[in-house]
Amino acid sequence: MTTIFRLRYEISFLILSLTIGLLILISSRGLPEPTYEPMGAAAFPSAIATITVFLVVLKLLRIFFANKSHLYAEENDQSQLRFFKSLCMLLIFIAFVVLVYFFDVRFWVSTFLFMLLAMVFIRKPSGMRGLLIQCMTLIGFSLVLDYVVTNILYFNF
């Protein structure tokens, strides 16, 4: 069974595959001709990219000619919410990376902020006491991690 929401993801995946396939196909044409071996650097990427484009077209045709009566609308709000939550989690992660990389915030501080925000986003803490325990645990965890990352793994952010 295919939901309309899944169909959107399928089409997004196909567009992505097509873009990458075409990009590789076009770029491999600029690669130098083989000199001492028969195949050269371009042939294999060209072949894989052509296969990808062909498969995408085949899949698109299949979706286009599929029996649309089997499509059913998922609860749209629920699917939207799932997508929104996943996107938010990714954005929180990107914010963490930006804090560490561009703003040079101490690793334990950014880890603490990220984890607190992510935890609260997934599940609201049960009251002030719960939040306080959460914060204390996270500070401890972040400090230990900061020590491991800077003094044992020698990461230089």
Partner: peptide, 9 residues
């Protein structure tokens, strides 16, 4: 097959 082709790319 499509997943494999993309992985190869």
């Amino acid at each position: 097959l499509l997943a494999a082709a993309l992985g190869a790319l």
